[in-house]
Design a protein around this nucleic acid. Structure first.
Lengths: 112, 112
DNA sequence: GAAAATGGTTTGCAATGCAAACTAGTAGTT
DNA sequence: AACTACTAGTTTGCATTGCAAACCATTTTC
C-alpha cells in the first residue's frame, strides 16, 4: 500500500517525459550539447530551453555556455545530485511496477 | 536516436503519476473500488474522481456504479484497451531506460 | 548586403493537476 | 423529527506548467 502512495509523490520535475529523456540520456554520457539533446528528444528549441532551465534551477544539471569557434554552444551535464535523482527515480518506477504485483486487494476489491 | 523521440510522445494520460499508479494497480486485479484506490494512491477524492473520469473518457477504464447495501459504490476496472495501453507504456519506459545505455554520442557531445 | 540559417531565450496561451466547496444520501442522538 | 456528523463521491476555480510562436543576436550564403 505505502508503495503506491510514494508514486504519487514522484518528482514531477523528473517524471515529465521530455525531462525524463534528457536526464536519462545525460546519465549515460559525460555531457551533451543543446542541439544534440534537441535532436534526441525531438523537442522544439523553446521547449528544450525552458526544460533545461528548470533542471538547472533545481540543481539537477549544470549548463556551460561557451563559443565553439564563433558559434555559441550550450553544454549540459548532470550534477551529482542530478545523477542520484534520476537513478532513484527509475528505481521508484521499478518498485511501482513490481509492487503492483504483490499488493493485496481488500474488502470490496476483487482479486484477479 | 529514434527511441528517445518516442518517449516525448509518451501518452501523458498514462504517464501522470497518479494515473500510472491507478492503471498499474488495476492491471493486477479484476477490479477495485473508489475508496480502495484512494487509499492506495493517497489522493484526495476530488483529484481521484477527475483522474478516473479522464481515464474513462479515454476508454481505458470502465466504471460501474452500484449500491452496496444502501451505500453507493464505484467500481473500476481496466478495459481491454486500457490493459494493452498500460502494458505498452511500461515497455516504452523500459526501452527508454535501456536504450539510453546504447545510444552513441555524436559531434560535440562527449562520451562517458 | 539581403536573405536564410544557427543557436538559443522570452512570452503568451491552452491545458492540466489539485483541493476546496458542494451534492446527496445514511447513521446516530437527543 | 430535527440536528449533527459521516460516507461517497462530483463540480468548480485557481495556480502551475508544457508548449510553440515570436523574438534576438550572430553567422553564413548568394
Amino acid at each position: 500500500m505505502s508503495l503506491f502512495k510514494e508514486i504519487t509523490e514522484l518528482d514531477k520535475l523528473l517524471h515529465e517525459p521530455s525531462r525524463l529523456a534528457i536526464m536519462t540520456a545525460l546519465s549515460n554520457c559525460e555531457s551533451a550539447d543543446f542541439i544534440f539533446l534537441q535532436r534526441l528528444t525531438g523537442m522544439s528549441k523553446g521547449n528544450l530551453s525552458s526544460h533545461l532551465s528548470k533542471l538547472e534551477e533545481a540543481n539537477l544539471v549544470e549548463i556551460q555556455k561557451s563559443f565553439v569557434g564563433k558559434i555559441p554552444n550550450t553544454n549540459v551535464s548532470l550534477t551529482k545530485e542530478g545523477l542520484k535523482a534520476i537513478n532513484e527515480h527509475w528505481e521508484k518506477l521499478e518498485e511501482l511496477r513490481n509492487g503492483s504485483k504483490t499488493w493485496k486487494p481488500e474488502h470490496e476489491t476483487k482479486a484477479l
